[in-house]
Amino acid sequence: MFSLAYLAENLPGGLQAIPRGQVEASKALGLNTPFTLGLIVLPQAFKISIPSITCQFISLFQDTTLLVIVLFLELLGISRLIFTNSMFLRPYSEVYIFIGILYWVFYYLMSLGSRKLEEQLNTNHR
């Protein structure tokens, strides 16, 4: 719920970044309010908001380790279950390195997806 409150502020921040002239230009073209929002304002606001939304999702994924406090299973909680197994005689560092690599892969995939989405929505021609 806490992260949803932050996430709910990302798109309004993007909406505030859209110049008023965009709406005025769409009105001059004769577009009504739903078309103005759907075709002009929201795509630009979403494009502006992508980095902050991605950052929020990465932060939310990092915060899943806090779930151990309320006894939900997550990556570090699963590692503790592995350590309690009597058949596991390896050093603990292997498990933590594997979890670190797993977190890195998830973060990298999220940022890669964000970059691809930004490239698809890029309207700046070079």
Results as ranks from 00 to 15, higher is better:
Phe83Leu: 04
Lys116Glu: 05
Ile69Phe: 12
Gln16Ile: 04
Tyr92Glu: 09
Leu15Glu: 06
Leu81Trp: 04
Ile97Val: 14
Ile82Cys: 07
Ala45Ser: 03
Glu9Cys: 02
Val95His: 00
His125Trp: 08
Thr54Leu: 09
Val95Pro: 02
Gly30Asn: 04
Gly13Ser: 06
Pro34Gly: 12
Ile82Leu: 13
Tyr103Cys: 05
Cys55His: 07
Lys27Asp: 10
Gln120Gly: 09
Gln44Leu: 09
Leu81His: 11
Ile48Phe: 04
Thr123Val: 02
Phe2His: 13
Leu109Arg: 15
Tyr96Val: 08
Asn124Trp: 08
Trp104Phe: 07
Gly21Lys: 08
Lys116Gln: 09
Ile48Asn: 10
Glu24Gly: 13
Thr33Arg: 15
Asp63Thr: 02
Glu24Gln: 14
Ser79Gly: 15
Tyr92Gln: 13
Leu67Ser: 01
Phe61His: 01
Phe61Leu: 00
Phe46Pro: 04
Leu75Tyr: 02
Leu117Trp: 03
Leu67Tyr: 00
Phe72Trp: 11
Leu73Arg: 15
Asn85Arg: 02
Leu31Val: 01
Thr33Asn: 14
Gln44Ser: 11
Pro19Lys: 12
Leu29Asp: 11
Ile58Gly: 10
Pro34Lys: 14
Pro34Asn: 13
Leu4Ile: 06
Phe106Asn: 05
Gln16Arg: 03
Leu60Lys: 03
Phe57His: 11
Leu42Cys: 11
Leu15Asp: 06
Pro12Arg: 03
Arg90Ala: 14
Val68Cys: 14
Leu29Gln: 14
Glu119Phe: 11
Leu89Glu: 08
Leu121Gly: 14
Leu89Trp: 06
Glu74Asn: 12
Ser93His: 12
Glu24His: 12
Asp63Met: 02
Tyr6Asp: 05
Thr64Pro: 03
Gly38Asp: 01
Leu60Glu: 00
Ser52Ile: 02
Leu7Val: 06
Cys55Asp: 07
Lys47Phe: 05
Met1Pro: 01
Thr54Trp: 06
Asn122Ile: 05
Leu121His: 14
Tyr6Pro: 01
Leu117Val: 09
Ala28Glu: 00
Leu31Trp: 03
Asn124Thr: 11
Ile53Pro: 04
Val105His: 04
Leu109Asp: 09
